[in-house]
Design a protein around this nucleic acid. Structure first.
Lengths: 147, 147
DNA sequence: GTAAATAGGTCAATAATGTTGACATATAAA
DNA sequence: TTTATATGTCAACATTATTGACCTATTTAC
């Protein structure tokens, strides 16, 4: 009967992941709505903000999507002046992506809403619990490679 | 500078959530592919499996999607004999959903792949870290309501 | 110097997932 | 009897993603 209880606990963990992730993305989705943007744009803004001068193929590798899937949202972000494109000096084939001032403002707004949400939770549970959480999440993220 | 370091840590936490969730859904997605099903079907299978005789409106409330969005995938699951529909005896308006034997087999396969993935991580980090992880995730899931 | 690999762009067709609006039926409750 | 509830379905549309095909430009390898 112990095994049944454990199975139930593991099912609860599945639901925790589902509901926590949904709650986590809800705020950013709400902000994006006002700009008529979606999660695809958010991911691009985030990773370009995190890694200035990122090349397009690096972005594709990170997001694990096809270049056709990246094309439309990226083109829109460039057209709307949120992301700038520049040809690399060392390799004229590759293009480097950066956030513009406007792009950075939006990215900052999105990221801040999420870091505040996380900071609030972390402050309630304490540093040790935060560290444990990070450890579990890091191992989980890693378990793709064990697939 | 301490504040900058904390901001960087919180950004790392955002990425942990993103990559961990992606790794977590990857296995199930892979199984679903073989059946030509998507995440929408998975969510239905999961919650019907977890709550046998669930009513359609309860499922809608849980998933937070429109009934039109539920319609197509649910109809398919019923058509393919994975989910059974029965009119409730106490209220002839509501229909109760259950997994068929075939539906239960698929749901079990999907859930097992995910519980195994979680169990593997939990076994490595220990019970205390698991508890901390649950606490953080529960609070995060709850933070929707504070929106 | 030519061939091949790399980086990127774009068009088309297709699919899954979701939305809102509109309208319908059946049943239950006030 | 009216109204609310539970469900179903149609249409139109949007987002995000896919694969296949084909294109240019640039760099690297032989």
């Amino acid at each position: 009967m112990v095994d049944l209880k454990r199975q139930s606990e593991l099912r609860e963990a599945i639901e925790l992941l589902y509901f926590a992730y949904r709650a986590f993305t809800a705020r950013a989705d709400h902000i994006l709505e006002h700009h008529g943007l979606g999660r695809a744009h958010h991911r691009i803004l985030y990773f370009v903000g995190r890694h200035p001068d990122i090349a397009i193929h690096t972005l594709l590798d990170t997001l694990k999507i096809s270049k056709q899937a990246l094309n439309a949202p990226l083109r829109r972000l460039v057209a709307e002046g949120l992301v700038s494109v520049e040809t690399a000096t060392h390799d004229h084939r590759t293009k480097l992506l950066r956030l513009t001032k406007t792009g950075h403002a939006l990215e900052s707004q999105l990221t801040t809403s999420q870091t505040e949400q996380l900071a609030e939770v972390f402050s309630k549970v304490g540093r040790d619990a935060e560290k444990d959480w990070r450890q579990v999440m890091a191992r989980l993220a890693d378990s793709t490679k064990t697939l």
